[in-house]
Amino acid sequence: MNAVRSPMAEQLARRMLPATTFVASAGVRAGERDPFVDAVLAEDGLTLGERHPRTLDELEDDYFDLIVTLAPEAHHAALELTRSLAVEVEYWPTPDPTGAGGTREQIMASYRDVRERLKARIGRRFVAPDHPD
């Protein structure tokens, strides 16, 4: 729903990749902004700013070299969307932290885990080994 994993990945990629790289995130369905995402991004010096969850139909551009999906439903939608396009689609299975229960700190730990997994995956896929992030 473009409320948790994808916005985190978008902000991390914007920081880790060159400014000339176009990065956008969208979901299969619209969702509500998640305050835990704001909190874990703030810990890393990032913010969503005024950005709110959006759907694929709301993207300003529909030409991509690569689409990375983080959830099974999004992956299937991306494959359907790109069936007749020359675009690479990668699936990075990423846990959904919204199901975490317990104390606020336990929930935050689940969101931090997703943030760190995404940061590591973006780094392995796109960033040179000598990059500081």
Results as ranks from 00 to 15, higher is better:
residue 98 T to D: 01
residue 83 R to W: 05
residue 83 R to P: 15
residue 79 L to T: 11
residue 110 S to K: 00
residue 76 H to N: 11
residue 91 Y to F: 09
residue 88 E to L: 10
residue 120 A to I: 05
residue 72 P to H: 02
residue 101 G to D: 12
residue 93 P to I: 02
residue 95 P to T: 02
residue 79 L to A: 12
residue 89 V to T: 05
residue 72 P to E: 11
residue 104 R to P: 07
residue 112 R to P: 01
residue 74 A to R: 00
residue 126 F to E: 03
residue 95 P to W: 00
residue 96 D to N: 05
residue 113 D to N: 10
residue 129 P to V: 09
residue 124 R to H: 10
residue 132 P to G: 07
residue 93 P to T: 02
residue 132 P to K: 03
residue 74 A to K: 03
residue 80 E to A: 13
residue 105 E to R: 01
residue 102 G to Y: 01
residue 80 E to C: 09
residue 118 L to P: 04
residue 133 D to V: 14
residue 92 W to V: 06
residue 94 T to L: 04
residue 121 R to Y: 06
residue 131 H to G: 14
residue 114 V to H: 02
residue 115 R to H: 07
residue 88 E to W: 00
residue 84 S to K: 07
residue 72 P to S: 08
residue 105 E to L: 03
residue 125 R to M: 12
residue 85 L to R: 10
residue 108 M to R: 04
residue 121 R to G: 03
residue 72 P to V: 01
residue 85 L to V: 05
residue 133 D to K: 08
residue 85 L to W: 11
residue 116 E to H: 12
residue 71 A to C: 15
residue 129 P to N: 09
residue 115 R to M: 08
residue 116 E to M: 10
residue 73 E to L: 10
residue 93 P to Y: 01
residue 90 E to G: 13
residue 99 G to W: 00
residue 108 M to H: 05
residue 130 D to P: 15
residue 76 H to C: 14
residue 103 T to Q: 10
residue 123 G to D: 05
residue 71 A to Q: 08
residue 86 A to N: 15
residue 76 H to G: 13
residue 124 R to P: 06
residue 71 A to M: 09
residue 132 P to H: 02
residue 93 P to V: 02
residue 133 D to Q: 12
residue 128 A to D: 15
residue 117 R to K: 12
residue 84 S to A: 13
residue 118 L to G: 00
residue 112 R to F: 03
residue 92 W to M: 11
residue 92 W to Q: 12
residue 82 T to R: 07
residue 123 G to P: 05
residue 123 G to C: 04
residue 125 R to N: 14
residue 116 E to F: 12
residue 73 E to H: 08
residue 108 M to F: 07
residue 128 A to S: 15
residue 71 A to L: 12
residue 132 P to Q: 04
residue 117 R to Q: 15
residue 101 G to H: 05
residue 91 Y to H: 08
residue 88 E to K: 09
residue 100 A to K: 03
residue 72 P to Y: 00
residue 71 A to I: 09
residue 111 Y to D: 01
residue 85 L to A: 08
residue 112 R to Q: 05
residue 87 V to P: 10
residue 107 I to R: 04
residue 116 E to P: 06
residue 116 E to K: 07
residue 130 D to K: 07
residue 76 H to D: 14
residue 85 L to D: 08
residue 90 E to H: 13
residue 108 M to W: 02
residue 124 R to G: 10
residue 119 K to T: 12
residue 130 D to E: 14
residue 103 T to R: 08
residue 75 H to T: 11
residue 89 V to Q: 04
residue 91 Y to R: 08
residue 118 L to N: 00
residue 107 I to M: 05
residue 130 D to A: 13
residue 126 F to C: 04
residue 94 T to S: 09
residue 127 V to Y: 06
residue 75 H to L: 10
residue 109 A to P: 08
residue 91 Y to M: 09
residue 90 E to V: 15
residue 86 A to K: 13
residue 133 D to G: 15
